[in-house]
């Protein structure tokens, strides 16, 4: 089931939190939803689920959520970890959440076991840690075995083992032909988890594509060449309109070229090459570079 968001917009007074956002969450892959703080990710997710009132439309398998007979079998959402009544036991919370899909008590117990909360199933979640609350919220999202998952920062508060489990779980879930949209600030984690990413900043779409496509947009993809006479190579490269920046006493960072081209240029310049390596920006580096002028609530002051 594919999710298609078209023209999502939301204004809070004079602030345009989400601005004509259009993207697709295809089936079969995990789609990461990235953006700086205040970029509008959570608002966009709420708009997609019709929880916030704004403009635009979202289709789940071609139809708005309202037009599906059982919405909980279409999409499972986890928008906030602490979404439960503190006095209602974890098990009863899930029994309630599973009402629309007619989920059995056995399924409730199965999901509680899956997220590792079976030992506290009959405890009230008022004493749950953030990590346990995240697991309960995740259990609620997957309870009805929906075709789409929408998770907002599900890894917050999870320990490394749980994050690894979550990554495997979501990849496995998507591999069954389902759609998974997951937002996170953990970019290194997202690089491991997501096949595609939707990046937004100040409510606007920056990119909607594969992680590779996004990273390739970064100027930090370069070729490092170390040689005996870097000044000769720089001269030749600049004459050919190639950007090269000195890096160390004998190194050059050549931007926008392949190792083959730089190797050929070195040969023509008559220099002895000691190292020639292609360097790829990480998702984090690309993200920071491409959203640097669009930080919503960035910390930049000195301590």
């Amino acid at each position: 089931m594919t999710i298609e968001a078209v023209g999502l917009s939301k204004r809070y007074g004079s602030v345009l939190a989400v601005d004509a956002l259009t993207f697709t969450v295809p089936r079969g892959v995990v789609t990461g939803f990235l953006g700086p703080n205040g970029a509008g990710k959570s608002t966009a997710m709420r708009l997609m689920l019709d929880l916030d009132r704004g403009e635009g439309r979202t289709a789940f398998d071609g139809k708005p959520l309202k037009e599906h007979r059982h919405a909980s079998r279409v999409v499972g959402a986890h928008l906030d970890a602490k979404v439960f009544h503190p006095q209602r036991t974890a098990r009863n919370h899930l029994r309630m959440v599973g009402s629309d899909a007619g989920v059995s008590n056995a399924r409730v117990d199965e999901v509680l076991s899956m997220v590792g909360l079976d030992s506290v199933a009959r405890k009230r979640p008022k004493t749950f840690s953030l990590g346990m609350s995240q697991r309960l919220a995740l259990a609620g999202a997957v309870l009805a075995d929906p075709m789409c998952l929408m998770l907002d920062e599900p890894a917050n508060g999870l320990d490394p083992q749980s994050i690894q489990w979550l990554r495997e779980f979501l990849r496995n879930y998507a591999s069954q032909g389902r759609s998974v949209l997951v937002s996170s600030h953990l970019l290194s984690e997202m690089q491991l988890m997501a096949d595609r990413i939707v990046v937004i900043a100040k409510g606007k779409l920056i990119t909607d594509g594969t992680v590779e496509d996004f990273v390739s947009m970064s100027t930090r993809n370069d070729v490092l060449v170390r040689c005996d006479r870097p000044e000769a190579l720089v001269e030749l490269l600049r004459a050919e309109g190639v950007t090269a920046v000195a890096e160390g006493p004998d190194g050059l960072a050549v931007i926008g070229e392949s190792t083959d081209r730089v190797g050929e240029a070195a040969f023509r310049a008559g220099v002895v090459v000691r190292e020639l390596v292609s360097r790829r920006a990480s998702l984090e580096e690309a993200f920071l570079e491409l959203t640097s002028d669009a930080q919503g609530f960035a910390a930049g002051g000195q301590l």
Partner: peptide, 14 residues
């Protein structure tokens, strides 16, 4: 108060 309205309205959008 407990944010459950979002869970409710996701399941029951009408």
């Amino acid at each position: 108060r407990h944010g459950l309205i979002r869970v409710t309205l996701t399941q029951f959008p009408h």
